[in-house]
């Protein structure tokens, strides 16, 4: 099971930047499953979940972009009231501090993507819990 990772791009906040970067991803036929842009004053980081992370990394890097992987946890959430709460309770019980989080729903599957300080350790901790962690393959096949 491959852990899920995001591609993060450090990009200057300028007109057309998003268009240029997504064009590179389109050129390699990478399918973007999820995206977020984080800005802080003049700093901007675009994070993608794509189905070809390594190819996307290489291709952006070759074009001179500053790229990094971010390993994350993709947690399956029941698509019903209380679904997210059950996950949050479990993370809290296990002392897992969430640095960034976002979620999406695909068909009837809700997914919570979380960034934590140490993804590998968090994954090990959660292995014995009732939560289901999605692999890279599962995410792309949703």
């Amino acid at each position: 099971m491959h852990p899920v990772k995001l591609i993060a791009v450090f990009a200057e906040n300028q007109l057309g930047q998003m268009a240029r970067i997504t064009k590179k991803l389109a050129d390699i036929h990478a399918n973007i499953r999820w995206v977020t842009i984080v800005t802080s004053e003049t700093l901007g980081v675009i994070k993608f979940l794509v189905d070809k992370p390594d190819l996307a990394y290489e291709s952006l890097h070759a074009k001179g972009y500053t790229v990094s992987y971010i390993e994350i946890l993709a947690i399956a959430v029941e698509d019903k009231p209380g679904g997210l709460n059950a996950v949050a309770e479990c993370l809290a019980r296990n002392n897992i501090n969430v640095e960034n989080a976002s979620g999406f729903v695909s068909d009837n599957q809700a997914v919570l993507l979380i960034e934590v300080a140490n993804a590998a350790a968090a994954r090990a901790t959660l292995a014995n819990q009732s939560l289901r962690l999605l692999s890279e393959e599962e995410i792309f096949n949703l």
Binding site: L6, A8, F10, V38, T39, S40, E41, L43, G44, V45, K47, T66, V67, S68, Y69, I70, E99, E115
Partner: peptide, 18 residues
């Protein structure tokens, strides 16, 4: 300019460095 190896994907770390 940030060093190539100075980027780990986290905007928080960039803000802190700044």
């Amino acid at each position: 300019e940030l060093a190539e190896a100075g980027f780990d994907g986290h905007v928080e770390h960039l803000t802190k460095l700044q």
